[in-house]
C-alpha cells in the first residue's frame, strides 16, 4: 500500500513536458527580442553584401525587388502552391500513420519489441535513398513524391508519439474504466489531452523536416514547385532568385508557426495557465 500511496502523490507531478505560456507582458517582450534579432540578421547581411560581389551576395533590398518580380511576373505563387500542397499531404500522411504506429508501440510491449529494430533502420535510412527508391518503384509522379516525403518523416513521429503513449497516466485511465467511459470519451478526454504535447512536438519538428525533404523530392523528380525552381536557378547561378525563393517560403513557415501551430498549442495548454474555457 505504501507504493500505491507514493504513486498517488507522484501523480500530481506527472504532467507533460511543456512549460506554461508567458504572461502578456512577457509575450510582448519576446516579440521585441525576436524583431531585434531579425533586424540584426538583416544588418549583417547588408554589411556582408557591401564587401562582396553583387552576384555572390546581393543586398537584402535587391533580393526583395527580385522577390517582387517573381511574385508579380514569375511563377513564384504557382511554385509555392505546388510545394505547399505536397507538404500538407505528406505531413498528414506521416502524422496519421506515425501516430497510429507510435501509439501502438507505446501501449503494446510485443509490438514495441518486434518493430523497434525496423524503426531504428527507418530512422537512419538517408532521405535520398527513400526518394530514389520511391521514384523507381512507384514512378515519377505525385504519389511517389508525397509517399517519399512521408516515409522520411514517419519514424520521428513514431518515436515521439511512442514516448507519449508510454507516459500515459495509468491512474486516470483507471478512472475512465471505473466509471465505464465509452472508448471515444476515453480517447477524447483522457488520452488525447495527455498526448497533445507529444503530438504538437511531432507536428512542429515534422513541418520543418518535411519542407526540407519536399524540396529535394521536387528537385529530383518533379517539374514544378519551389525545389524544381531552385534547381533551375542553380543551373543559371542565379543567387538572387535562390535567396528570394528562400525568403518567400521561410516566411510561409513562420506564418504557419505563428498563426497555426502556436495558437493551437496555446489552446491545448490553456488549462495549465488556468484560463477557464
Amino acid at each position: 500500500m505504501s507504493t500505491e500511496r507514493q504513486s498517488d502523490r507522484l501523480q500530481g507531478q506527472s504532467t507533460t513536458p511543456v512549460p506554461a505560456q508567458g504572461a502578456p507582458t512577457r509575450r510582448s517582450q519576446r516579440f521585441w527580442l525576436r524583431s531585434f534579432s531579425i533586424l540584426a540578421f538583416l544588418l549583417v547581411w547588408q554589411v556582408g553584401s557591401l564587401f562582396s560581389d553583387a552576384d555572390t551576395l546581393p543586398a537584402p533590398l535587391v533580393v526583395l525587388q527580385n522577390l517582387w518580380h517573381h511574385l508579380t511576373e514569375g511563377e513564384l505563387l504557382e511554385s509555392l502552391a505546388a510545394t505547399l500542397r505536397r507538404v500538407v499531404l505528406a505531413f498528414l500522411l506521416a502524422m496519421a500513420t506515425g501516430t497510429l504506429v507510435g501509439f501502438w508501440m507505446g501501449r503494446s510491449r510485443s509490438a514495441d519489441s518486434s518493430l523497434d529494430s525496423i524503426l531504428i533502420l527507418a530512422l537512419n535510412i538517408p532521405a535520398l535513398v527513400t526518394i530514389i527508391l520511391c521514384y523507381l518503384w512507384i514512378g515519377l509522379n505525385e504519389v511517389a513524391a508525397v509517399v517519399a516525403v512521408a516515409i522520411n518523416k514517419m519514424p520521428t513521429v513514431v518515436v515521439t508519439v511512442r514516448e507519449g503513449a508510454r507516459a500515459l497516466d495509468r491512474e486516470l485511465f483507471d478512472v475512465a474504466r471505473a466509471y465505464r467511459l465509452s472508448r471515444w470519451r476515453t480517447m477524447r478526454f483522457v488520452y488525447l489531452p495527455q498526448m497533445m504535447p507529444y503530438l504538437m512536438a511531432a507536428a512542429r519538428s515534422g513541418l520543418s523536416l518535411i519542407w526540407k525533404i519536399v524540396l529535394v523530392v521536387e528537385l529530383l523528380g518533379r517539374s514544378d514547385g519551389v525545389g524544381f525552381q531552385l534547381g533551375v536557378f542553380f543551373q543559371f547561378f542565379d543567387i538572387t532568385s535562390i535567396l528570394a525563393y528562400t525568403i518567400s517560403f521561410a516566411s510561409i513557415i513562420m506564418a504557419i508557426e505563428f498563426l497555426l501551430v502556436q495558437p493551437l498549442e496555446r489552446k491545448a495548454n490553456h488549462w495549465r495557465d488556468g484560463d477557464a474555457d
Binding site: E171, A178, Y179
Partner: peptide, 26 residues
C-alpha cells in the same frame, strides 16, 4: 454502476471542475 473515490482525487487536470463531473455522465 460504480462510483469510485480514489485515494487521490484523480481529476482530469485539463477539465474544469464541472466538466470533470459531467465527463462521467452521458
Amino acid at each position: 454502476k460504480i462510483g469510485y473515490v480514489f485515494q487521490s482525487p484523480r481529476l482530469m487536470p485539463w477539465l474544469t471542475a464541472a466538466r470533470n463531473i459531467s465527463l462521467v455522465l452521458e
